[in-house]
C-alpha cells in the first residue's frame, strides 16, 4: 500500500471539496477546487486509489506545496 501526498500548486484558499474521505478516486479525477488570484484551480488525483485523508477545510488558506489530502493505492 503506497500513500501519495496531494499538494497545492498555488497559494490560495480552498473553495470546494468534491470528495469525502474513504471515496475511491480515479487518476485525474477532481478532488477539490482551490481559489487563487480569482481563478479556480482544480486539484486532481495524481494516482487512482482511496482518499485516505483530507487535510483542509473549505475557506482555509493554503500555501504552495501544502499537503491537501492523502491517497492510498
Amino acid at each position: 500500500m503506497a500513500t501519495t501526498q496531494v499538494t497545492s500548486e498555488v497559494i490560495g484558499s480552498v473553495w470546494k471539496i468534491e470528495k469525502a474521505e474513504g471515496d475511491a478516486v480515479a487518476e485525474g479525477e477532481l478532488i477539490m477546487i482551490l481559489e487563487s488570484m480569482k481563478m479556480e484551480i482544480p486539484v486532481e488525483a495524481p494516482v487512482a486509489g482511496t482518499l485516505a485523508a483530507i487535510k483542509v477545510k473549505p475557506e482555509e488558506s493554503v500555501e504552495e506545496d501544502q499537503v491537501l489530502c492523502l491517497i492510498e493505492s
Binding site: I33, S36, K38, M39, E40, I41, P42
Partner: peptide, 9 residues
Amino acid sequence: LPESRKRGY
C-alpha cells in the same frame, strides 16, 4: 480546457 474562463488547468 475548462468551459469556465475562471477555471485553471
